[in-house]
């Protein structure tokens, strides 16, 4: 059970947009290595000719009429914004 798989934790954390501490990097590398080692047993399953399931039941796109309905008032829509000004969400400068 212990022959863990090495993963490039820095690359994956970057893709996930999460800054990790040194302790977290070491801990997650080791724990995820063990989990991935466990997951390796899926390679034993013969999946030849088996269709993948994204859902348990066939799910199809659902179309709706494009009709304007009641919407949240601006103040409600913005009540959870971390920073706002003049009905807009404030973010750090994006363009130099």
């Amino acid at each position: 059970m212990s022959s863990a798989i090495q993963i490039d934790i820095d690359r994956v954390a970057k893709l996930a947009r999460i800054a990790l501490t040194a302790e977290e990097r070491a801990m997650f590398s080791s724990q995820l290595g063990s989990v991935l080692h466990h997951i390796e047993q899926l390679s034993k399953v013969d999946v030849t000719g088996v269709e993948p399931s994204a859902h348990a039941f066939a799910v199809h796109n659902v179309w709706g009429e494009d009709v304007a309905g009641p919407a949240l008032p601006v103040t409600e829509a913005l009540r959870n914004a971390p920073a706002q000004r003049e009905h807009m969400i404030v973010v750090p400068k994006v363009v130099e």
Binding site: L32, L36, L42, V47, V50, P52, S53
Partner: peptide
Amino acid sequence: IILGTYVLSSGYYDAYYLRAQKVRTL
């Protein structure tokens, strides 16, 4: 999140995510 990002990342998608979806069918 990191495990999920890993199994969806380029080079691992077929081995993990797609295979898991097939096993889900079984």
